[in-house]
Write a protein that binds this DNA or RNA. Structure first.
Length: 289
DNA sequence: CACTTGACCTGTCCGC
DNA sequence: TGCGGACAGGTCAAGT
């Protein structure tokens, strides 16, 4: 899914919807999606109050009054959708929703609250997960320790951004910017969008990128991600926010999934290729190799 | 270490 | 209509 802007959109939605609620129980038919012991669920989830919802990279953390947290990764097709007691689906439901009735075939975890509302973790491909862990231990998890800086933090500079790429000097810039240990939260959509903005061909070796190009990439990455957060993220396939609604960034995308259409800057036909094992969209004129 | 590739899953789309 | 293969907002564990 879900890259930084989508996960941030979900976080903001959940903040408004579930803070202060009390959990009565959780169920899952998919151990891979919810690999927690029954005793942990009983001791640290049931009866807990929701006190905060945080994000680091593409990982969400729902902090509980028990000093445990639900740590969640949506991977490619994960959704976290809140359904109020009186939420109606089907007839009358806003047509910008991708969600009909929940739970559905892709529902992997259901969390119930005392007021009758529910939070569903849906995940078609089962790559994502919801783990119940002690809040204080989260920063020590291997996958959390290795993630790089948050690119949208106010004190994150263009110089720091360029420095992070030194560890990946011999690979192409697309693989490097997707590497979560370089910078946190960048995925396939915003990698392509930012590389187009900075006029950098994704196949270029990191070692050949100039300081001016790194600065442009830094600026464009932040712009494109901030715009996407404003638009509620990108709904390319399955992504929806905490209310089950799509984001509209794809209406503003310049190259992603726009192969065959004109480059908005020069009119050259946008091409799709494969770089770092991922579908990659470029303007062959603006982003000459 | 750094780099590349395949694997994890389910669903959809496209060509035969 | 069916069937095979490629592909999909991500990340690991293996290879080299």
């Amino acid at each position: 899914m879900p890259e930084l802007p989508e996960v941030e959109t979900v976080r903001r939605g959940l903040l408004k919807l579930i803070i202060g609620k009390t959990i009565t129980g959780a169920s899952s038919d998919t151990p891979k999606s919810f690999p927690n012991t029954k005793s942990d669920v009983k001791n640290f989830l049931v009866g807990a109050n929701i006190i905060d919802v945080r994000r680091r990279a593409k990982v969400l953390m729902i902090d509980l009054s028990t000093e445990y947290s639900l740590v969640i990764h949506l991977k490619m097709t994960g959704q976290l959708v809140f359904v109020g007691k009186d939420t109606r689906f089907g007839a009358g439901h806003p047509n910008d929703s991708l969600v009909n009735a929940l739970p559905d075939k892709s529902t992997r975890v259901t969390i119930e609250f005392t007021d009758g509302s529910q939070l569903f973790f849906n995940d078609q491909r089962k790559f994502g997960w919801v783990m119940l862990l002690p809040t204080l231990e989260i920063p020590d998890l291997a996958f959390m320790k290795k993630v790089g800086p948050e690119p949208l933090e106010a004190d994150f500079t263009a110089e720091q951004f360029a420095d992070r790429f030194k560890r990946r000097a011999k690979t192409n810039i697309k693989a490097a910017i997707l590497d979560q240990s370089v910078v946190a939260g960048v995925g396939n959509i915003y990698a392509d969008e930012a590389l187009w903005g900075a006029k950098i061909n994704p196949q270029r070796l990191v070692a050949t990128i100039t300081p001016a190009e790194f600065e442009a990439l830094y600026t464009d990455l932040r712009e494109v991600m901030n715009l996407s957060i404003k638009k509620g993220g990108s709904s390319n396939h399955t992504y929806v926010n905490a209310e089950g609604k799509r984001g509209s960034y794809m209406d503003f995308a310049r190259v992603f999934r726009r192969e065959g259409l004109p480059c908005p800057r020069c009119g050259t036909t946008i091409e799709k290729l494969r770089v770092a094992g991922r579908g990659t969209h470029i303007c062959p004129y603006c982003q000459v190799l």
